[in-house]
């Protein structure tokens, strides 16, 4: 795969990933389009620009690590993996089928290049901290990136991890909150409000950066700032739109976990464009 910082190229990759997402979920007739579409720019920026990794050598010890803690957004990770060359693109539509490597939630037994099997919310940040600690012990330059859902951080373990990261000054980890403001049962503000979210992370001792999670230039700068910041872990609060890129899915709680119909898929692909 070719890495790039060129925003036009990143946008083109993002478009292909969005097409993968809606197509594979429509084929599976189930899955989570909303929270996959909201995280596209974050994952594309990480895998095609920011992270040091090599699809030809997935066990390279010095690689950066990515954990999709919000495991239900597996389709965005699968789309990125296919585009990066980790896994085949032509079988993405086997998502959620028996025997498929594209399991309902990311599963290392089927895709060894995954850093973690996820799906149960709230545990990924701690796992990432363990990996970050191992890297520091080895004096490795490895950095760890963990994508959290906004609803996910209602889990108490996230805040145990937040305390740990700050206290131990784990500055080679970046948590990204995909703050799309919608969870399964509805809007976050109606289920269990997180605000003032940035204040909570700052008070927990994290270098806190708010960023437009669909703006490649802003994401690039935020990740660079995070890498330059020493002595504290960094959290990116990525303000995003659930269902981004497909008008009838945007900000629509229904598409947290419902697949598009055949007609809806056609309309979605038209909107995303080729």
């Amino acid at each position: 795969m070719n890495k790039t910082s060129d925003i036009g190229e990143l946008q083109a990759i993002a478009k292909r990933v969005r097409r993968h997402i809606v197509t594979m979920i429509a084929a599976a007739k189930s899955g989570h389009p909303g929270g996959s579409l909201s995280a596209v720019e974050t994952l594309v920026t990480l895998y095609f620009d920011v992270m040091r990794h090599d699809p030809a050598n997935p066990t390279w010890p010095e690689r950066d690590r990515f954990i999709l803690s919000k495991g239900h957004a597996a389709p965005v990770l699968y789309g990125v993996f296919a585009e990066a060359g980790y896994t085949p693109a032509d079988s993405l539509n086997t998502l959620r089928s028996i025997g498929s490597i594209y399991q309902g939630h990311p599963d290392r037994r089927f895709i060894p290049a995954l850093e973690a099997s996820t799906g149960s919310l709230g545990v990924g940040l701690s796992l990432g901290l363990g990996m970050a600690e191992a890297a520091r012990l080895d004096k490795s330059t490895t950095r760890v990136y963990v994508l959290l859902g906004d609803g996910e951080i209602q889990e108490g373990q996230i805040w145990e991890a937040a305390m740990y990261g700050a206290f131990h000054k784990v500055d080679n980890i970046v948590a990204i909150v995909d703050y799309n403001k919608i969870q399964l049962d509805g809007f976050v503000k109606d289920i269990m409000e997180l605000e003032p979210l940035a204040d909570k992370w700052r008070a927990s001792g994290w270098n806190t950066i708010e960023v437009d999670g669909h703006d490649f230039a802003a994401l690039q700068k935020a990740f660079a700032d995070a890498a330059a910041f020493k002595g504290k872990p960094t959290v990116l609060i990525a303000h995003t739109i659930k269902g981004k890129g497909v008008s009838f899915m945007e900000n629509n709680p229904k598409f947290h976990g419902v697949a598009p119909t055949k007609d809806e898929l056609e309309k979605a692909l038209q909107e995303i464009g080729a």
Partner: peptide, 11 residues
């Protein structure tokens, strides 16, 4: 979970 992260990084 931190222990799992350490163990999965070869510790």
């Amino acid at each position: 979970s931190i222990g799992a992260g350490l163990a999965s990084s070869g510790k």
